[in-house]
């Protein structure tokens, strides 16, 4: 019996944990090598000092909490919007389809930073409604994600065999019931990898809000960096924090995906 199957049998997700540990160890080793090289015979005389990060770690983690909140709220709302967008995109009414397509293309074809600025600065000018900063960026990200999730869901929905839809119809389910009980659960599984990668992109893209003065992880990084005059150590730590959150999510989701494939292989 090989190591892999023995580990899998234990029921504890050892493989992802080991992978994370290996990666962290690898990165640490890389830093040690770089520091060693920097200290000996190169023109770079920068003295790395990660000890300065310590006292400011709570401030950075405080920023991380806001980043995670922003990510979770935006993804939840974005998915709900995305399902609606997917259905509107497949509507039999031409006007609905055209407007939805236009919205999707605008959101996909413009930089997220500019979308944030639009909602934060331009929306109050046009509508007179001034949202608080957090709500404002959540709105911008929701609109952005709605387009991406919408297209993902649409491709998933269209990948479902016609017989599944007909079987739901024959059973007597209404259009909305077929969506809810038959189509969306299956489409969700088909597009899961895409949904995850969109979500992880968003997690990192939330760092854009630091430019609007929202105190997320990167914003806190800027503050601490200004206080300590140690931007390299601080921003490296910030990057590491993003990575440490995002990478295990990828691994966990990949396992979940395998689980789904084993249990719910498409009925052929």
């Amino acid at each position: 019996m090989n190591v892999g199957s023995r580990l899998r049998k234990s029921g504890i997700p050892w493989l992802p944990i080991l992978a994370v540990l290996a990666l962290v160890a690898g990165l640490a080793a890389l830093w040690l090598v770089l520091i060693a090289l920097g200290g000996s015979h190169s023109a770079v005389t920068y003295q790395w000092d990660f000890a300065v990060v310590g006292p400011y770690l709570p401030a950075l983690l405080q920023g991380l909490v806001l980043t995670i909140q922003l990510t979770i709220v935006s993804i939840t709302l974005g998915m709900i919007l995305g399902i609606t967008v997917a259905m509107a995109r497949m509507s039999s009414i031409t006007a609905v389809r055209v407007v939805t397509t236009l919205y999707i293309e605008i959101m996909r074809g413009t930089p997220a930073l500019i979308q944030l600025v639009w909602v934060y600065y331009a929306l109050p000018v046009v509508t007179g409604i001034q949202l608080p900063a957090f709500e404002s960026v959540v709105l911008a990200f929701t609109l952005n994600l709605g387009a991406f999730y919408g297209e993902a869901f649409r491709s998933g929905i269209q990948a479902i065999p016609r017989e599944q839809v007909e079987a739901g119809d024959v059973l007597g389910l209404t259009y909305l019931q077929r969506m809810r009980y038959v189509i969306i659960p299956q489409a969700f599984r088909i597009v899961l990898p895409v949904l995850i990668s969109i979500g992880i992109s968003l997690f990192k893209d939330t760092s854009l809000v630091s430019t609007l003065g929202v105190a997320d992880l990167l914003y806190q990084g800027h503050l601490v960096s200004d206080l300590t005059y140690r931007p390299l150590e601080i921003f490296t730590t910030v990057a590491l924090i993003y990575f440490v959150v995002a990478f295990p999510i990828t691994l966990i989701m990949r396992r979940y995906e395998l689980y789904l494939h084993r249990h719910l292989a498409a009925v052929k």
Partner: peptide
């Protein structure tokens, strides 16, 4: 074609109609 709903157990497949339609 077998048109069972793959994401549902047999019980759930069979219960869907009686519960949501009937």
């Amino acid at each position: 074609q077998y048109t069972l709903f793959p994401q549902l157990s047999l019980r759930k497949n069979v219960e869907l109609g009686p519960s949501k339609v009937l």
